[in-house]
């Protein structure tokens, strides 16, 4: 970024906003916005606590379980849809609805069905992550060259062999791209799930802080969550580069 002919590094804007936050907070305009320095002190206070570690553990577990289920169920479903017309007819309208639906609205339904526990959060993650994984796996399976599938058939491959030895592998670049997008959505799912369930994990901590009006704590926790989401996304971005490398090398 350049301003008045001077090169300004991107961090500068971050520093500027932080300073603004500090000034507004120090001015004491509203108790909703405490000074940034106080928030940072709280942050250092909160992170080593046991409830934070517990919440982090729960989040990680729900995230891994949820994405695991989404991948294990979504990839085969997507490939099946891509290769078998009846399955596509049956499922595609639903997948298309869910992939763009406001899924947060469904979390209370899951809550009503499965209670206020970890299971609900895991299912929320699955709900958020699975559709894009299905769609991308489907696209990959449809793009498999017809002669490759004829080849498998003519050399005697049954449907399962064709799936495992040809379609899955041929669609791998698209499948991996879908999983990456699914993981990003899973981060949303795991946070939103906890916020709505609010008796476990970070959601529970939020609930306690907000009902006791602990604004400094709340902001500190928010900062942590944003940083976490940002870090996870960064890791996926690096992963995507590898996927792209793979796709380019194999085509």
């Amino acid at each position: 970024m350049t301003l008045f002919g001077l090169r300004v590094p991107m961090v500068a804007s971050l520093v500027l906003w932080a300073a603004l936050w500090e000034v507004v907070g120090q001015a004491g305009a509203t108790i909703l916005i405490p000074p940034l320095s106080h928030v940072l002190v709280r942050l250092v206070e909160i992170v080593p606590t046991e409830s934070f570690a517990e919440a982090l553990g729960l989040t990680a577990r729900a995230f891994v379980l949820g994405t695991g289920i989404a991948v294990l169920a979504g990839v085969p479903l997507g490939v099946l849809m891509g290769r078998w017309e009846p399955a596509d007819r049956l499922m595609l309208p639903w997948v298309n609805v869910f992939v763009s639906a406001p899924l947060s609205a469904l979390v209370p339904v899951i809550m009503a069905l499965f209670g206020f526990g970890e299971l609900t959060i895991v299912l929320t993650v699955v709900l958020f992550a699975i559709w894009i994984i299905v769609l991308d796996a489907r696209a990959g399976a449809r793009a498999v060259s017809p002669s490759l599938s004829e080849m498998a058939q003519s050399y005697g491959a049954g449907p399962l062999q064709a799936f495992a030895k040809v379609y899955l592998r041929a669609a791998l670049p698209e499948i991996l791209a879908g999983i990456r997008l699914g993981l990003v959505r899973a981060v949303k799912g795991v946070i939103i799930g906890q916020l709505l369930v609010s008796v476990v994990g970070f959601g529970h901590m939020f609930e306690i802080y907000s009902s006791n009006f602990l604004m400094e704590h709340m902001w500190a926790l928010l900062l942590v969550l944003f940083a976490l989401a940002f870090a996870i996304d960064g890791v996926f971005a690096r992963l995507e580069k590898r996927v792209e490398y793979y796709a380019a090398a194999r085509q």
Binding site: S145, S147, L148, E150, M151, Q153, S154, Y155, G156, V166, R169, A170, L172, R250, Q251
Partner: peptide
């Protein structure tokens, strides 16, 4: 259907790229 007594050679080779 396809059978082991027949084998196909494809115009575009149809090799597994991986």
């Amino acid at each position: 259907g396809p059978g082991p007594e027949r084998a196909f050679v494809f115009q575009d080779f149809a090799l597994l790229p991986w």
